[in-house]
């Protein structure tokens, strides 16, 4: 029964060049065709999963900002511009496709939200490295004495999805992240 099923699958794939390379009546050769097919199916599923996990809707940064400020309390932080983006992340705002950057006024607070949109994959990786470096730098600054700050930093989020890279830190970081993720 099992042999028959394998042989039938193998015979049905015989028409595809390269999939079945030998006499389909030989069970060993048919097995090769089935293995090849299974490998290709696995590859498609794997690439498909990666594709969907990294897929993000193309949302304008204006919309991201308006949703974040209307649906969360991120507006209580101070909106920051290109100078601060350069200062804290060493990112040139002209290189990016847009960004939303809010940071607490007090230098003793670690509450912060940065969402930056890259122009391509390579740039997204660079931005991700920058936000991770910023997080490490914050941990170095507050390590040893800022217990509350360190607790927030340890629960902060850095990551990327599609062309968007984010750094989210604060007591409401979970909500901010959820709202942002629902947008893209």
């Amino acid at each position: 029964m099992r042999e028959n099923i394998i042989r039938r699958i193998g015979n049905s794939l015989n028409a595809v060049p390269g999939i079945i390379t030998r006499n389909p009546d030989d069970p060993g050769f048919t097995r090769n065709g089935v293995i090849k097919t299974l490998m290709i199916v696995f590859l498609i599923l794997y690439l498909g999963a990666l594709y969907s996990a990294n897929n993000a809707a193309d949302v304008s940064m204006v919309r991201v900002e308006s949703s974040m400020t209307s649906r969360t309390n991120v507006g209580s932080l101070l909106k920051r511009g290109r100078a601060d983006l350069k200062r804290y992340y060493s990112i040139d705002d002209e290189a990016a496709d847009g960004y939303v950057f809010y940071k607490a006024i007090s230098p003793m607070s670690v509450n912060e939200l940065l969402i930056i949109k890259a122009r391509d994959a390579a740039q997204a990786e660079q931005f991700l490295a920058s936000v991770q470096a910023h997080l490490e730098s914050q941990k170095t600054i507050f390590g040893g004495y800022g217990t509350d700050q360190m607790a927030l930093l340890s629960r902060s989020f850095t990551g990327s999805k599609g062309k968007y890279v984010y750094y989210i830190c604060g007591p409401d970081a979970d909500t901010w992240r959820d709202v942002f993720m629902s947008l893209i």
Partner: peptide, 27 residues
């Protein structure tokens, strides 16, 4: 898929002057 897919879509988008959204996969 990993290296040239985004590049190809971006090049087509530049030619037809219409953005094409696609996921960005790290290499």
């Amino acid at each position: 898929f990993f290296k040239y897919y985004g590049f190809l879509l971006d090049s087509v988008a530049a030619l037809i002057r219409t953005p094409i959204a696609h996921p960005v996969l790290s290499l």
